[in-house]
């Protein structure tokens, strides 16, 4: 039972990584840049939701909308102000700018929100756990332990609402995103831009608008990830986004940077590896193990799991 519990929490954490990794991989695929400020968008999303929820008049659903909106706008503005002027600059200049934006966001948060971590109120606060499993009895769905018909017996497996929500919400979003990219005209334009920006322009595709849209989608996903993550791990600080940002970047590279299914698979695998190594090997070494796995994967398959073979036909 404990294995299932670790596996589920790994899947849940991995789904959150996947949502963040999607932002990295889409932006890399289309704008050909590593947006190292992406992790800090998560942090901003967390604070936006936190501040909105602290207002007594603001219901949770509205706080969620506010957080997604703030991040979407922020992503588009960052692209326009910081990255667009560097569209034809060397990649290193763009990379350094992204790191600069990352520090800027962290320090603005530090100035306005202080370094003291805030306790994030779960978006599923007060909701019953998704699943309770008892030894030899029928499992209970959406039932509080206090309402359990089995008296004071403690469950052998608990899957919290937060864990469940992270998986379900991520699955729905990934399915919707896949449909959007493969079935709509705007999605096809994104694919065209990621393959050949110049040729895409010759089709009449507005590349700048497409890049803006990519940043908007990636940042909106980051806001969703922020709320799911802060609900499961409720401490919010100005550096909250850094580690998940780096892990999600690893997940994107792991899956094959630029590949959307790759980011999903990479994210989920990374979460599972992390949680299982925490449980069975060492909680201190878990991050080291995650990065070790990345190194091994890249040695065996330099383009990542789903990475495209780099071949050119002349």
């Amino acid at each position: 039972m404990s294995f299932i519990s670790y596996l589920v929490s790994g899947l849940s954490l991995g789904s959150i990584y996947a949502l963040i990794a999607l932002g990295y991989t889409m932006v890399y695929g289309i704008a050909k840049m590593l947006n190292f400020a992406h992790g800090d968008i998560i942090m901003v999303g967390g604070y936006a939701a936190f501040l909105a929820m602290s207002a007594s008049w603001c219901p949770i659903w509205l706080a969620m909308i506010i957080s997604v909106t703030v991040c979407t706008v922020l992503g588009v503005v960052i692209e326009k102000v910081a990255y667009r002027p560097l569209r034809s600059a060397p990649p290193l200049a763009v990379l350094i700018t992204a790191i600069g934006v990352s520090y800027l966001l962290q320090n603005i948060a530090l100035l306005t929100q202080s370094a003291t971590p805030k306790t994030f109120k779960s978006i599923a606060a007060g909701a019953p756990p998704f699943l309770l499993v008892f030894e030899g009895k029928a499992p209970l769905f959406f039932t509080k332990l206090s309402d359990s018909p089995y008296g004071g017996e403690s469950p052998v497996l608990t899957i919290s609402m937060e864990t469940f929500l992270a998986i379900v919400v991520s699955l729905v979003i990934m399915a919707a995103l896949t449909l959007f990219i493969n079935k709509t005209k705007a999605g096809k334009a994104m694919l065209a831009c990621s393959e050949d920006r110049g040729a895409a322009q010759l089709m009449g595709i507005n590349v700048n608008a497409t890049i803006s849209m990519t940043f908007a989608i990636g940042s909106a996903l980051a806001a969703v990830a922020a709320m799911l993550m802060c609900s499961a791990y409720p401490l919010l600080s100005p550096t909250t986004g850094s580690m998940p940002g780096i892990k999600a970047f690893v997940a994107a590279v792991f899956g094959g940077i630029g590949s959307i299914p790759g980011a999903m698979i990479g994210g989920v695998l990374l979460g599972v590896i992390e949680q299982l190594s925490k449980a069975y090997i060492s909680s201190q070494l878990s991050d080291a193990i995650v990065f070790l796995v990345l190194i091994v994967v890249l040695i065996i398959r330099p383009t990542g799991i789903m990475g495209k073979k780099i071949s050119e036909k002349v």
């Binding site: 096809k188 694919l191 050949d196 040729a199 010759l202 089709m203 595709i205 495209k308 036909k313």
Partner: peptide, 26 residues
């Protein structure tokens, strides 16, 4: 105005049909 670029620059990962439909993007 349409432009057939040097080296064709078709979208290699997309299907022939998707390439053609991108031509009608506007």
């Amino acid at each position: 105005m349409a432009h057939v670029p040097e080296g064709r620059r078709v979208f290699a990962q997309l299907t022939v049909y998707e390439n053609l439909m991108l031509g009608a993007y506007t």
